[in-house]
Design a binder for these strands. Structure first.
Length: 155
DNA sequence: GGCGGAAGGG
DNA sequence: CCCTTCCGCC
């Protein structure tokens, strides 16, 4: 799975003419994406963990009961919704987190095209990996051009 | 269960 | 911005 994610990222970037995919320097422990995949999400400075990072983290290390990969590519099933919510709540310091609230956060991902629902399958969602990578790739979308240097008058 | 609006926090 | 909280609706 880990390798296929990278491969998908590679294909996505290749199709964009940006074959600058760096290999992850870290061991295969819990890291699913190279550092650059996270960067914009953390900018500026040190921000909080994002929900999709957390989900990928659990999926990546095969976190037993709470969540697991589904049948299709990128699809995952929440096997124990309230446990997942509790885990997420612990990570965010939100002791009253539950599946109702967590799922609202997941629904906000629909518009961002990070996730979508697998209709008809209970507790089943699907990642848009290529979109995910591209959205978080530095310079995609390209940053606005730097403002022209101010014309300083000589005092 | 699943959806999305509304308000609000950090 | 990225959720968290709450909620009416289907």
């Amino acid at each position: 799975m880990l390798l296929t994610i990278f491969y998908d990222a590679f294909l996505a970037l290749k199709s964009q003419g940006e074959i600058r995919l760096r290999a992850s320097t870290k061991p295969s422990s819990a890291v699913l994406f190279p550092d650059w995949a996270y960067k914009p999400a953390w900018s500026p400075g040190s921000r909080q963990v994002q929900l999709w990072h957390f989900l990928l983290e659990l999926l990546g290390r095969g976190e037993g009961g709470a969540i697991g990969w589904g049948g299709e590519w990128g699809e995952f099933v929440i096997r124990d919704p309230e446990r997942l919510a509790r885990l997420w709540g612990e990570r965010k310091g939100k002791p009253h987190m539950n599946y109702d609230k967590l799922s609202r956060a997941l629904r906000y991902y629909y518009n961002k095209r990070i996730l979508h629902k697998t209709k008809g399958k209970r507790f089943t969602y699907k990642f848009n990996f290529s979109k995910l990578i591209l959205v978080n790739y530095p310079g995609h979308p390209p940053p606005p051009p730097p403002p022209p240097p101010p014309l300083r008058s000589i005092l």
